[in-house]
Design a protein around this nucleic acid. Structure first.
Length: 424
DNA sequence: TCTGGGGTCCTAGGACCC
DNA sequence: TCTGGGGTCCTAGGACCC
């Protein structure tokens, strides 16, 4: 068996860097990017981090700091980030044969066997340089014999400037030296809850976890954490996943810009989310059979009455026709709905997927698929993707006050002709 | 007043069967 | 009806990730 070798390439402050690409006036200035609904901070430039703006903090808590330091604030512009992300990933795919796009700003590379014919640290430096020069985004590269160690290397490359953005953990000695310095919370796969319990067991550093008996860890937690122990010891438990797995579920949910107290508004919101979920389903080329609807009040207003429920229903046959799911969603909502609450969030989930054509209607089923389904859905999607117009179902409502807040949205510089930046 | 959205995987427990 | 082991399937909930 040949030894495995991975790299993790991770963009630095990705959303903030994307915003800055088209705003050279913000060079060296602090930037934050907000979550949907302009709720909390999800990305910060180096300068904003320096000022002490924490990750995931609600905006209103840092408003004074934003004013005092003139921090540039942006709503999330996913159209822009997705496009820049594609450029980064394409560049990587030209440089190494096997790439796993892990998230919008990260990719794992398979370097196994590549180290026989290439200087790996030089390759890492080339990757950094090319992405910086071609796209204008700076990245860090971590190298190790397992994904977990590559992640750890990347963490170090970001944390310690003298590494120049590349950390190579091919030797056990370096692995152990870094792990001894790394708190358990920074290990990939160890979240808040498990970190807390590990600390009670006297395990505080990555190295202590690596040296813990796997059996004990499995019995105290789960196989997932046990795998992390192996991965920290350089035993790869997870390979590069080049093919994008088909989804198991599709979720469409949002917090409301303003609380919903009337059924009509909630019906509109649920219709809207159902339409979006079905669009995603058709992009996947799948059919679904189950749909769940949930509605809930806000966790954060403890003095007000709370309500949170989910209901799941089935179609008699798998479908990708929005009309089928709207009907089902509304039936579920009417059973879920309770008057007298201020609802903060709702959503729908599609599940139980089938490839088209693999299911069969029962001979005596009374329900028949919607007429002209394929043609209508194709038309709907092609018009909505054309950018020229939108077709909606009547139940979705127009410009509702519950819809998402995005007050600081930047232009879609790279994906809309009308938004292309001009140079004066 | 103001606190994201979209995923995956694993486990425990109940229903049901032989 | 009770006794018992062993298996499958499903769902809910918890934990994690970005």
């Amino acid at each position: 068996m040949t030894a495995t070798l991975f790299a993790l390439v991770d963009c630095n402050n990705f959303y903030a860097s994307c915003e800055r690409l088209f705003r050279p006036d913000l060079q060296g200035k602090p930037i934050v990017v907000l979550s949907n609904n302009d709720g909390c901070v999800v990305a910060r430039s180096a300068e904003a981090k320096q000022l002490g703006v924490k990750m995931a903090v609600p905006v209103y808590q840092v408003m004074d700091m934003i004013r005092a330091h003139n921090i540039a604030v942006f709503s999330s512009n996913y159209a822009l980030y997705a496009d820049i992300s594609n450029r980064v990933m394409t560049t990587l795919e030209h440089m190494v044969p096997r790439v796993e796009v892990y998230s919008i700003d990260e990719a794992f590379l398979d370097l196994s066997r590549l180290d026989r014919c290439q200087d790996i640290t030089q390759l890492a430096a080339d990757i950094r340089q090319r992405i910086q020069q071609w796209i204008g985004i700076s990245v860090c590269v971590g190298i190790g014999p397992s994904k977990t160690l590559a992640k750890l290397a990347n963490y170090a490359a970001k944390k310690y400037p003298m590494t120049q953005g590349v950390v190579d953990l091919r030797t056990t000695e370096r692995q152990r030296r870094l792990m001894a310095l790394t708190p358990i919370d920074e290990v990939w796969g160890i979240g808040r809850k498990i970190a807390q319990r590990l600390k009670l067991m006297g395990i505080h550093t990555a190295l202590q976890l690596a040296d813990a008996p796997p059996k004990l860890i499995r019995d105290s937690f789960s196989v997932t954490v046990e795998r992390t122990v192996h991965e920290l010891n350089g035993i790869a438990c997870d390979d590069i996943q080049q093919l994008v797995a088909t989804k198991q579920q599709i979720v469409s949910s949002r917090s409301f810009g303003e609380r919903i107290t009337h059924l009509t508004a909630m019906q509109q919101a649920i219709n809207d989310y159902t339409c979006r979920a079905c669009e995603k389903l058709r992009v996947e080329g799948q059919f679904a059979r189950t749909l769940s609807v949930f509605i809930r009040t806000s966790y954060f207003t403890e003095h007000q009455p709370q309500y949170s429920q989910v209901l799941t229903g089935n179609l008699t046959y798998p479908s990708d026709d929005t009309r089928d799911f709207i009907a089902l969603a509304q039936r579920l909502l009417s059973r879920l709905w309770r008057e007298g609450y201020a609802y903060a969030k709702a959503g729908v989930m599609l599940g139980d997927f089938y490839a088209p054509g693999v299911f069969q209607l029962g001979l005596f089923d009374e329900v028949k698929p919607q007429p002209k389904s394929r043609a209508l859905m194709n038309l709907l999607d092609s018009v909505n993707h054309s950018g020229k117009a939108k077709i909606q179902f009547a139940g979705q409502g127009l410009n509702a006050d519950w819809s998402m807040k995005r007050n600081q949205l930047s232009p879609r510089y790279t994906t809309q002709w009308a938004h292309i930046p001009t140079v004066k």
